[in-house]
């Protein structure tokens, strides 16, 4: 069925970490009148696929960073990041972006890159930025999963 969402099995961005990632992605790419923001399963799934192909040490760092990020929300609004207001989330993000600790800045830069990849590599997003996509739009790729994820219709596999 062409309209059925593609069922994706998350390898890294699962459970609580997925919620944290979605909350960050929504602040990085907020919804506007051109469409929904980045905090969707479709963004997370594409990012998860990409994370699964990174160097294992980098994967581990990103996952630890997401967990730390969630609980450092306590310092910015007394709650974990996913339960903060949007204003408090942005306060935390601005602090990380300019943190005196280099690892926190680069960790945030890495998450930002993953959110932007998960969003701007999606075919359903391209019309909103005036991008008509590759000239060889339908050229097949050996991994059909990533091609399906780029369509932007994604559900979570049980």
């Amino acid at each position: 069925m062409a309209d059925e969402p593609f069922r994706y099995h998350f390898k890294h961005l699962a459970g609580r970490r997925q919620q944290t990632f979605l909350a960050i992605a929504e602040e990085i790419i907020p919804a506007d009148d051109s469409g929904p923001g980045g905090g969707t399963i479709a963004t997370a799934a594409l990012a998860d696929w990409a994370i699964a192909r990174l160097d294992p040490s980098l994967q581990k760092l990103l996952m630890v960073f997401l967990t730390v990020w969630e609980y450092l929300g306590l310092l910015f609004g007394g709650k974990p990041f996913t339960r903060l207001s949007s204003e408090a989330r942005q306060r935390q993000m601005r602090w990380f972006e300019r943190s005196p600790i280099p690892a926190l800045r680069t960790g945030f830069f890495g998450l930002r890159a993953m959110a932007l990849m998960g969003f701007y590599c999606r075919e359903d997003v391209w019309p909103s930025i005036g991008y008509e996509g590759p000239l060889l739009f339908d050229r097949p790729f050996p991994d059909p999963e990533i091609r399906a994820l780029q369509k932007g219709k994604v559900g979570v596999a049980p």
């Binding site: 990409a50 192909r53 000239l135 790729f141 780029q150």
Partner: peptide, 8 residues
């Protein structure tokens, strides 16, 4: 394939 995520 001219697609960024596929060509990483």
């Amino acid at each position: 394939t001219q697609r960024e995520v596929e060509m990483m």
